[in-house]
Nucleic acid binder design. Structure first.
Length: 415
RNA sequence: CGGGGUAUAGCGCAGUUGGCUAGCGCGUCUGGUUUGGGACCAGAAGGUCGUCGGUUCAAAUCCGACUACCCCGACCA
């Protein structure tokens, strides 16, 4: 992509109404645009990152047997009345009237909808297990949207729903899902801490949250340094300095953001909505469910919170919108750099090429702000058939012959 | 929903004891010189001063209501 054609310019100053690093940097670098509190558009660069996150999520959900569907965001009241959640979620759900005074809502979550789909199609133990997921925008009328992509009123969410014959099968899948979540966050460069949290009204079991430590997070978790005890403060009895119940070490308090949450729902929704199957003996049984959420947009915000410096974003290779940022710093070499760009593109490398007529300082600073993992620089200081590379995290730099660049990028991205 | 703050050009801000034609920086456009860490010269465009109402000879400036946004809290299946 030629940067002269890219929609969305960088800006020097932070928007005055943003305070979190993810919102400031993503706005300044041209990834997102704020429409209103807690509601953002994704510009070309931002959409690329969001899509990469979603695709990582998809590949891991598919790997444990998930099948992707897409449910509507617009819901009728009736299905929500079946679980009495039209009433209990009215504070958080956008609810309004459609034609003829019909009560409508925007999906804050999708248990009711997926169960409605499932009960029309599941009738036998032969239909189980089934694992359905979607990636869709959720709408929640948060009392206070804040912190950029970390807490929005419309945000991207992957929600998977598991349908099993019995509690044992649910437990097995639940642990597979836990593993898959670990892989997803690792692939996104995040160290997610599996945290015990409240199971809500559905279960006396704990649910499990995946928390990423960051000062802008809204959650606090109690962590044992040995890693054998982590609880959300909303349920934890311990305070900083108390002894871990497993190993006796002193626990500490950590500020964090929840990027995923998984629940064992059991038979709650199956009971309320009549989701049953006939077992081997022809006896009617309730389907046992679980639900598993990840917020891709929140992951994007969390990654920026974790990976940035005073100059800008530092994307992990797996999420960067382009693999490399090719910078032309000497207009004398414009034709030469055009050629390098074409060759890299033909070799399958995703390159953002700063071909603008701007000063070297602007290009270098913009490149740091946008945060691609490597800069490829062609300027007065580079020789006839070479360019200079600089890794964004400052871990390496040097010179490369043109015919080595594609291999270099492939190596860098293989890790 | 409670407490606090803000609203002036695309962005960031100044101007508010009421008074000429509302400024500055960045960005944008034109021409020229530049190009390894946010260059320079010359010129230009761009504003219902958040909205509505009131006071006044005169309102960005004073008064009232409303709206939006931000921060702290409450809330967060």
């Amino acid at each position: 992509m030629r940067q002269s054609q890219l929609f969305g310019k960088t800006v020097r100053e932070a928007p005055k109404d943003e305070i979190s690093q993810n919102a400031i940097l993503l706005s300044r670098a041209g990834y997102i645009d704020k429409l209103m509190a807690g509601v953002y558009s994704y510009l070309p660069l931002g959409l690329k990152v969001l899509s990469k996150i979603k695709n990582i999520v998809r590949s891991e959900m598919d790997a444990i047997g998930g099948q992707e569907i897409l449910m509507p965001a617009l819901h009728p009241r009736e299905v929500w009345d079946e679980t009495k959640r039209w009433e209990s979620l009215k504070e958080i759900m956008f609810q309004f009237k459609g034609r003829g005074g019909k009560d409508l809502g925007l999906g804050a979550t999708h248990e009711e909808i997926v169960v409605d789909i499932a009960r029309k199609r599941i009738s036998s133990y032969r239909d189980l297990p089934v694992y359905l997921y979607q990636i869709q925008d959720k709408f929640r009328n948060e009392p206070r949207a804040k912190s950029g992509l970390l807490r929005g009123r419309e945000f991207s969410m992957k929600d998977l729903y598991s349908f099993n014959q019995n509690q044992h099968d649910l437990e097995v899948f639940y642990s597979q899902a836990t593993q898959a979540y670990g892989k997803i966050f690792a692939r996104c460069g995040l160290q997610a801490i599996v945290t015990e949290a409240s199971g809500g009204a559905f279960t006396s079991d704990y649910s499990h949250e995946f928390q990423v430590a960051t000062p802008y997070g809204e959650d606090e978790i109690v962590v044992c340094p040995a890693g054998d005890f982590v609880q959300n403060t909303e349920i934890c009895q311990l305070k900083t300095g108390d002894r871990c119940p497993h190993c006796g070490q002193a626990v500490k308090l950590v500020q964090s953001i929840e990027v995923g949450n998984i629940f064992k729902l059991g038979a709650k929704y199956s009971q309320d909505m009549g989701l049953t199957f006939a077992d081997e003996n022809g006896k009617k049984q309730e389907v046992i469910m679980g639900c598993y959420g990840i917020g891709p947009s929140r992951v994007m915000g969390a990654v920026v919170e974790v990976y940035h410096d005073d100059k800008g974003i530092i994307w992990p290779a797996s999420l960067a919108p382009y693999q490399a940022h090719l910078l032309l710093l000497d207009q004398q070499k414009s034709a030469l750099t055009d050629q390098v760009y074409q060759e890299l593109t033909q070799a399958g490398c995703e390159v953002l090429y700063d071909d603008r007529q701007e000063s070297a300082g602007i290009k270098l600073n913009d490149a740091d702000l946008i945060g691609l993992p490597v800069k490829l620089i062609i300027g007065a200081k580079t020789g006839e058939h070479e360019l200079e590379y600089q890794l964004r995290d400052n871990s390496d730099q040097g010179k490369l012959k043109f015919d080595r660049v594609a291999d270099f990028l492939n190596q860098l991205y293989k890790k």
